[in-house]
């Protein structure tokens, strides 16, 4: 495994969210994934970055082992309609369907709608501001508990 956990100090008020940032598939475009990982870490979350070229099975295993609140999948290879549903399915099969799944990458609008139907919480395309991504994950991960 190429997992890597990074510690930063968290605000005392809230439990630190644990987020897996994952690169499914074969493409090596990791600029976005690394920027997101760093931004989430700077926002006080605990970030586990899987590294490149991960299979759906490897990603699911990391999410379960790390007891993550959310998983961000970064795909720029066009394989999202194969790999994302597979990961959602595997998470459900492991009883981890409460984990928030987000996707980032070059995703055409029609596919976004379809991915959301499958249970993906949000899809971020190129140009999405970091602040929007951070606050989305904060909001989505904390909603059930804080209500």
């Amino acid at each position: 495994m190429t997992s890597q956990t990074l510690d930063t100090s968290a605000p005392a008020s809230a439990r630190r969210l644990r987020v897996v940032v994952a690169k499914p598939g074969l493409d090596g475009h990791d600029r976005g994934a690394k920027i997101i990982a760093r931004a989430l870490r700077d926002a006080g979350m605990e970030v586990i970055y899987t590294g490149l070229h991960q299979t759906p099975e490897q990603i699911t295993e990391t999410v379960i082992q790390e007891d993550a609140d959310a998983v961000g999948l970064s795909i720029l290879s066009g394989a999202h309609m194969t790999l994302v549903p597979r990961i959602v399915e595997l998470l459900a099969a492991q009883g981890a369907d409460d984990v928030i799944v987000t996707v980032g990458g070059t995703i055409p609008p029609d596919d976004i709608a379809e991915l959301k139907q499958l249970g993906v919480a949000a899809v971020f395309t190129p140009g999405a501001p970091l602040e929007e991504i951070i606050s989305f994950i904060e909001g989505a991960a904390r909603k059930p508990e804080s209500l």
Partner: peptide, 22 residues
């Protein structure tokens, strides 16, 4: 495509969803 760039044949399990895509 990505499998060709990574040295995987099209029928490798690692090529799933990537054949002829990029």
């Amino acid at each position: 495509d990505m499998p060709s760039l990574m040295g995987h044949d099209s029928d490798s399990p690692l090529s799933l969803g990537e054949v002829g895509r990029e």
